[in-house]
Design a protein around this nucleic acid. Sequence first.
DNA 1: TTGTATGCGTTATCAC
DNA 2: GTGATAACGCATACAA
Lengths: 331, 331
Amino acid sequence: MPTIEQVALLAKVSVATVSRVINNSAYVSDDTRQRVNDAIERLNYQPNALGKMLRKESTQLILVLLHSVDNPFFSKIIQGIEEVAHQHQYNVIICNTYGDLDREQHYLNMLKNHLVDGAIFISNTTSVKDMEWLEKHYPIAQVVEYYHDCSSAYFSIDFYKASTDMMNILLDAGHKHIGFVHTGSSSIISAQEKFRAYVESLQQKQLPLYSVYPTEVLFGFSEAKAQAEYLLNKHPEITAFFSTSDMLAAGIIDELLVRGKSIPEDAMVTGFDNTDYSIISTPMITTVELNSFDLGSKAMEYLLRKISDKKTEPECYFGDYRIVHRTSTKK
Amino acid sequence: MPTIEQVALLAKVSVATVSRVINNSAYVSDDTRQRVNDAIERLNYQPNALGKMLRKESTQLILVLLHSVDNPFFSKIIQGIEEVAHQHQYNVIICNTYGDLDREQHYLNMLKNHLVDGAIFISNTTSVKDMEWLEKHYPIAQVVEYYHDCSSAYFSIDFYKASTDMMNILLDAGHKHIGFVHTGSSSIISAQEKFRAYVESLQQKQLPLYSVYPTEVLFGFSEAKAQAEYLLNKHPEITAFFSTSDMLAAGIIDELLVRGKSIPEDAMVTGFDNTDYSIISTPMITTVELNSFDLGSKAMEYLLRKISDKKTEPECYFGDYRIVHRTSTKK
DNA sequence: TTGTATGCGTTATCAC
DNA sequence: GTGATAACGCATACAA
């Protein structure tokens, strides 16, 4: 692998001059510039990024931590992050944590070891305490998930409000027995807020609660179907379901159809996130659409500010959302 | 940010000794080890990864390039890659190319600049010629997509064979008018092989071909639905569809249902990849399941061999697959 | 068992 | 315009 020194040798100039040519950082005569470029070409020289980063004490790299790339919901967020990052000559690298704390800590070493200039957490598993510590020492931001006291910057939506809107759709349609189907990941704020909205909406009207606590955190179609089956067996009076994701809603719908129910005539179902699942399911699912791209780009913009000025105060932002009305709740 | 030197100063030892403690690379007396660890603790010292990488001329980083993380199909491949990588103290970083050559080239700089020790391409957009060049100079491997002459190592399945199997399901069920619905990404090998299997299966039986060439490369539900609509309007005799992904199959199914067709009684549809879409769709979709985890881990294992021994010859591997029979083709 | 010194590849500050 | 050289943070061969 050729180095800048070998280029300099071949072009009969100093390494400083080669560096100047590469970075256009100072005047170089046309003649020597030509010689340097020829040498670079002939040696097939590629500057070593590590040397450059070490010297500049900046890597122009941003780490994005998420549960797993298999959730389509995250895609638009990442696109938003990338858009802004690339505009500012930053690269973003994505790492899967699978909700595993060890793995997350492992990848966080890239931040602590200065391999990346900052990190964005999407659906994090790190504790509040650790987040606060990280916030003090490194540029970080959260998207979607967050902690109430804003111990670190976040960009999310008001899940309580959105969920209340959803519940009102079901309540306004006259439903009195509404089930709650979820993944069981009760530690994350979005799940908490959705549940809180479910509970409070019903309690205000003195209506009963129907939900089951999964023993494991699972995101799947079959788990939701099983939850719906259990609830319907125990409480046949249930005529509607509020669920925390589109995938879960699809599972519920499948169980209802198996039981010969018509949707939305006999039963209604709501999802969350407006992923492709909500379109592919038959009937299509009423869901909440976040402006995910916006959340991602806002988070990245904040991070850039934080990187260039360590004294930037953490920002906390709630973005827009909208209910997408589809057949699963349309009478 | 504290450096190894400040730790050494505080612990009253040399930087060499601090390094030894950190890496357990040589005997250090319990006494000094204690002092060093205390200093590390007190300064909250984190070794700088760049310094270490530059010195060791190895980053223990693998780049994974893919179209976009929003395709669930890729998830299992990545898990396979990560599994093997982590076993060998490698980290994997994922970058989205969105099928954009510029973006792919941009991220490839991480390989050329020695920021990563190797790269894995999932659904690449780089040309054969560029791949051959890269193969000569850096450790790389391809998963799923590949080039026929094995100019670089690849780990995939025999798409032609799998697609022929699928076509035979439709043909054996007595269908004589079978449509082909695809994304239009004709440059990638998997698409070519699927199409070749479609054409040859029908030509052998002297049956007609029905397909349309999308003007744009699109992966979506609605595009597939539109293609099915167009084909069915023009050729109402079509009773079956072979499509190149589960998502597309879901779109076709939606169009068929809109037209009042029963599936599989009036029409049959096949998908590809066995993603969640194939389960969520009603009816569930018959599809091809690749052993994606296996492909990912095999690719990573090869890459590790290549990294430790540059003279390793490129490997070309076709893995297992199986047809998952579901309602969309079951009579 | 520990310390000294060198080099990894680059950029930037000085000179000239 | 260009060159010499220090510095970025670390690991390691060699001394002691």
